[in-house]
Design a protein around this nucleic acid. Structure first.
Length: 276
DNA sequence: TTCAGCCTGTCG
DNA sequence: CGACAGGCTGAA
């Protein structure tokens, strides 16, 4: 899915274009998607007339604050949120037309939520409930977590490092791409046990994580297949990937062919020589 | 703690 | 045609 850098990019795009905009109409294209997830169609319609005052993100989730409500998006593997200004082409020629779930018509243009594989989610809470909800469902955001918190979380951790870092309740935001890239940069084997990491390892992991996320956001995220930013444009960070999706290719450091394993159901690519 | 299941699309 | 893909859940 869109992982942290992709969702952060979308957040910035939408904030710039929609801050202060008024919601004029909610057009539901796929009611089944919503009702299956326990969202009543009327609760969505009730948002009409609200002003978008704020956009928040924790991990891979994004919340539009509309008056006293929070409309929370989780983009799954293939969800997208694309804004088209009133002056741009209409959604009839929108490439994801077939997969549209909801169209939010604002005074400044339309926000199109689509999801090819329908692994995404949409939820409405009161704006006050949002922080509580996120703090129960998610660990600290990987972009903002302090070094002290990160180290203490990892020191209390158990099991394989890859699985641990993918757990959103532990740390929110990393997914399969960024965990593979991070472990390569930090020279840590994906099957290494968290308990076995030294303080030095943890420090390195923390700094590499921040740097990786910073670079990925500056290149507007990774587009492997379907991801597009808040304007419908692909990201560029995939050109900087060192291991993800590169099984069998030479390690950029030592030239050894990159190894591929299936770990807890996720494809995992790494260098068997550089990563210990 | 695995693992199918949720979905659609693409690639070999 | 089967295998696989940025994720997560809940049932066995």
């Amino acid at each position: 899915m869109p992982e942290l850098p992709e969702v952060e990019t979308i957040k910035r795009d939408l904030l710039q274009r929609l801050s202060g905009a008024k919601l004029l109409e909610v057009e539901i294209r796929n009611p089944d998607f919503l009702t299956k997830r326990g969202l009543s169609l009327s609760s969505l319609q009730d948002l009409v007339g609200a002003k978008l005052t704020e956009i928040r993100r924790t991990g891979k989730q994004l919340a539009l604050i509309l008056n006293d409500k929070a409309l929370i998006f989780h983009l799954g593997l293939t969800g997208s949120l694309v804004f088209k200004a009133s002056s741009e082409a209409s959604e009839s020629e929108f490439p994801l037309e077939k997969h549209l779930i909801v169209i939010l018509h604002f005074d400044r243009g339309t926000l199109l939520f689509s999801d090819i594989r329908k692994f995404g989610n949409l939820k409405i809470l009161s704006a006050e409930e949002l922080s509580d909800y996120w703090s129960k469902a998610l660990g600290p955001d990987a972009l903002y977590v302090s070094k002290d918190d990160f180290v203490s979380i990892l020191k209390r951790g158990k099991g394989q490092i890859k699985k641990f870092l993918l757990d959103q309740k532990v740390l929110a935001g990393l997914g399969n791409i960024y965990v593979d890239e991070l472990l390569f940069r930090a020279r840590i084997h994906p099957e290494r046990r968290v308990e076995s990491l030294s303080s030095e390892d943890l420090e390195r992991l923390y700094h590499e994580m921040k740097e990786l996320l910073r670079e990925a956001i500056s290149l507007r995220g990774s587009s492997i297949r379907d991801y597009v930013d808040g304007t419908g444009t692909p990201g560029l960070f995939q050109t900087r990937h060192q291991v993800y999706g590169k099984r069998g290719m030479p390690c950029p450091i030592c030239g050894t062919p990159l190894k591929f394993l299936n770990l807890h159901g996720r494809g995992t690519t790494f260098c068997p020589v550089c990563q210990k």
